[in-house]
Amino acid sequence: MPPRKPTGLIVGLCLGAVAVLALGVVAIVSLNRGPGPSNAGYQAAPPSPSSAYELPPTSGSSAPSSTPTSPSESPSTSASAGPHKILKLADHPILQDPNAGLQNRVCNLPPWTSTQDGAEAFFTAASKCLDAAWGPFLESYNLPFTPPALHFPTGPSFDTECGTIQVGIATAAYYCENNLYVPFKGLQTDQYGNNPGVYLALFAHEYGHHVQEVAGIMDAAWQKIYAAGQNSPEGLDMSRRKELQAQCFSGMFLGAHVDRGGTITRDMYNKAWNDQETRGDNTSRSHDHGTNAHYAQWWRAGAKDNRIADCNTFAASASDVS
């Protein structure tokens, strides 16, 4: 597969300020809001997330019984092949069990402070919680989980396998090939201040792309995008499905960890819930991430019920991923 190309348009830019990156963007989310109050049109009290949870059935360290064999393997050899990606989309094994979700866990994060060191401490701790949540889940499907490498760029640009990325208001977090970048200068802390729920949801979205990478969903999606053409209607549709699934995965993480005795509080959850509809293609005037309404819809679906089958954007109708 050739190197992944830039998605180009960025979620969450203020109207009239859409930026196009020239190199290698796999997934970027901006913190910029659209016009109007941040809580316009939201429920005052989001529903409590579900606490039920099941891992897929396993037998020892083998793959779950629902995991299909690779096309290049026979049924008798697939179980001993070791962890491997499965390049599937709507029919991916992790998306089939209606009762599977993330385990409800305690996550302790340091208090948010709007400094380089404070942000690094916060996101480093958050990454450990995300590893602990998603690692066992993915490994139970015999997928090759390793945590992403974290980077906290401080300069005006940073180099990645996807190209050189300029830091600005359009670059709050960035994922590329098992690496997660969080440039502090892109977080716009002067606008958001002490709002850790918003920052955590943003970070969990980018980590959601790592989940897709480990599972093989990311590779399968990019194969479709390359085949159709990145800016074709089919390519943009696939891009939206990929991004909206990462939204749902972000919601799952916060829903599984709120009010569990750690530091992810109901206030953080509510503010993240209320922030989601300020982001999306209506704000950025692009067509590759989903409308603001769908951006919020898929995040909230994950947050409310914590069921990964609810995150199957690849099986959704076109009207739900527009």
Results as ranks from 00 to 15, higher is better:
Asp305Val: 06
Pro110Ala: 02
Gly8Lys: 04
Phe314Thr: 11
Gln212Ile: 01
Val11Ser: 12
Val211Cys: 03
Ser317Gln: 13
Asp259Cys: 01
Val26Trp: 03
Thr278Cys: 02
Met268Asp: 11
Asn274Tyr: 01
Gly8Ile: 08
Met238Ile: 13
Pro196Leu: 00
Thr58Asn: 12
Asp117Thr: 15
Tyr199Asp: 03
Ala40Gly: 01
Ser51Pro: 06
Phe158Gly: 06
Thr278Leu: 08
Gln247Thr: 12
Thr146Glu: 15
Val182Tyr: 06
Ile217Ser: 04
Gln223Lys: 04
Ala126His: 07
Ile308Lys: 06
Gly163Ala: 05
Phe203His: 07
Ser70Trp: 14
Asn195His: 07
Asp159Arg: 08
Ser232Tyr: 10
Tyr42Lys: 09
Leu143Gly: 06
Lys88Cys: 05
Gly193Thr: 09
Gly16Cys: 09
Asp190Asn: 09
Asn99Phe: 05
His84Phe: 04
Gln166Arg: 12
His294Glu: 10
Val182Pro: 02
Arg4Ala: 00
Gln166Asp: 14
Ala44His: 08
Ile94His: 04
Ile94Arg: 03
Pro153Asp: 14
Leu180Ser: 03
Tyr269Leu: 02
Ser38Asp: 12
Gly193Trp: 05
Gln247Asp: 15
Val198Arg: 10
Leu187Gln: 13
Thr7Pro: 00
Pro136Trp: 08
Asn312Asp: 14
Ser232Phe: 08
Gly197Ala: 02
Ala52Ser: 15
Arg260Thr: 14
Lys224Arg: 12
Ala19Glu: 15
Asn39Ala: 10
Asp259Ser: 10
Ala228Glu: 12
Thr164Phe: 05
Arg285Ile: 04
Leu95Phe: 09
Pro56Gly: 11
Thr67Met: 14
Thr7Cys: 00
Ala301Gly: 03
Asn178Ile: 00
Ala27Gly: 12
Ala293Asp: 13
Leu150Tyr: 12
Lys304Ala: 11
Ile217Ala: 03
Pro233Tyr: 09
Phe145Glu: 11
Val106Glu: 13
Gly82His: 11
Val29Asp: 13
Val11His: 04
Ala132Thr: 14
Asp281Trp: 01
Ala27Asp: 13
Ala318Trp: 09
Gln297Met: 07
Tyr181Asn: 04
Ile94Tyr: 06
Pro64Leu: 11
Asp275Gln: 09
Lys224Ser: 10
Ala256Pro: 01
Pro35Val: 11
Val11Pro: 00
Thr283Glu: 06
Ser322Asp: 14
Leu236Phe: 00
Gly163Phe: 05
Thr154Ser: 15
Arg241Tyr: 10
Pro6Tyr: 02
Tyr226Leu: 02
Met268Pro: 01
Asn108Ala: 01
Gly302Trp: 07
Asp131Asn: 11
Phe249Cys: 03
Ala293Glu: 12
Thr113Leu: 08
Met218His: 13
Gly101Cys: 03
Pro3Asp: 05
Ala204Leu: 01
Ser74Ala: 12
Ala315Asp: 15
Ser232Trp: 10
Gly82Gln: 11
Met238Leu: 07
Asn179Thr: 09
Lys185Met: 10
Pro144Lys: 06
Ala215Gln: 10
Asp131Gln: 11
Ala45Val: 13
Leu236Asn: 09
Gln166Lys: 12
Asp288Gly: 00
Gly135Arg: 07
Val106Ile: 10
Ser239Asp: 08
Ala296Ser: 10
Ala173Gly: 14
